[in-house]
Amino acid sequence: MDVKHVANLANLPLSPEEESKFSVQFAQTLETISLINRLNTSETESTYQVTGLVNVTRPDELNPDKILSQKQALSNSPRIYNGFFVVPAVFS
């Protein structure tokens, strides 16, 4: 596994020590989990949802008890401006 590339995909900063430590550990973990390849699953369907629910819907109605005020919604943000979240610039 290209640890640096995966860290990049996951948007995680990694120290050089972590990089070398993780590559050894990931190899061990992948080795352990490869046990499942011994099972023949060619005739088996995948399970995404264990209780078998499908197409769960609810009425499209607002619940006033579950609406946050703008002040509440912004209350945990480290940087706000004129009632908006401040995000890092995408284009330089």
Binding site: A7, A10, F22, F26, I33, L39, T41, T44, S46, T47
Partner: peptide, 25 residues
């Protein structure tokens, strides 16, 4: 990171799909 890897293009079938099938078993 391991989860990013098992879901990534080229490895999704080998790991994630395989696991969901064994889950059925």
């Amino acid at each position: 990171m391991l989860g990013t890897y098992t879901l990534s293009s080229g490895y999704y079938d080998q790991y994630y799909q395989k696991a969901l099938k064994v889950r059925t078993m």
